[in-house]
Amino acid sequence: MLFQQILNGLTNGSLYALMAVGVTMVYKSLGMLNFAHGDIMMVGTFITLTFVLMGYPLYVGIALGVISAAILGFLLERAILRKVKFTSFVNLLIATVGVSYVLRNAAMVIWGTSPQLFPSMFPETLIEIGNFRITPQSIGVILISLVIITGLHFFFTKVKIGKCMQLANSDPEGAAMMGVNVTHMRFLTFGISAALAAIAGIMIAPMTYARVDMSATIGMKAFAAAILGGIGNLWGALLGGIILGIVEALGSAYISTAYRDAFSFIILFIVLFVKPTGLLNKKIENKL
């Protein structure tokens, strides 16, 4: 059971990580949490489902869903956040909370409130190794998440536009002086973050169904994972997500399933108590 649970933890954890990466990117660029992140994930998932139900092949649906989510991310930045950006961070937060509610309620009207089956991009047959049963879905989710996060790492450290984004996020004034268009970079950050959320949603939905309220718990876990690992840190998000996933799985296996969601937040409190900046962050950056 231990191995099985660690595998389950890794699967969920890598999804939390994928969501947390998006949270962390936005945090770095605007210095705030995007409360609409989970709902962008949900909308991307449902758009994919809609295309699949219209008869498009799953991969086309996924591509269109991810692109739509990215556009939604762009719109969120362009139409709403850019307008309130220079007032105060509280306004920014409230704006994203508002967007979250609007998205969720609109989704209820469009897609209804009952959960819907979501096709999996992996085969259903189990891989059996001795006593262990592994679903191809689990393996797929873990691999895809790892590949995406590693890819992002190279994008931010090796590719020019990625480096510009990184620079614009960590030092907007400096970047602007170097000729980087900070506004464009921020715009791009939101798009990529939203696309990542949609990918996570598309991988979660076959296991949990596509549901309008799917953002509630997963969105929270994403914040928790990002903060746990050290917010603003890409590898921190990965580490935080995986720790949460495994703690949750082992906690529910050996203590009680009823407190499953509580374990993640308990571990978050413990870590923040011992290391307030999160696991991988060295110091609190204070720009004030």
Binding site: M1, Q4, Q5, N8, N12, M207, T208, D213, A216, T217, A249, S252, A253, S256, T257, A258, R260, D261
Partner: peptide, 12 residues
Amino acid sequence: EVYNSGDTDFSV
């Protein structure tokens, strides 16, 4: 065994 409404993993 008990689970919470909204749980998605029942493997344990």
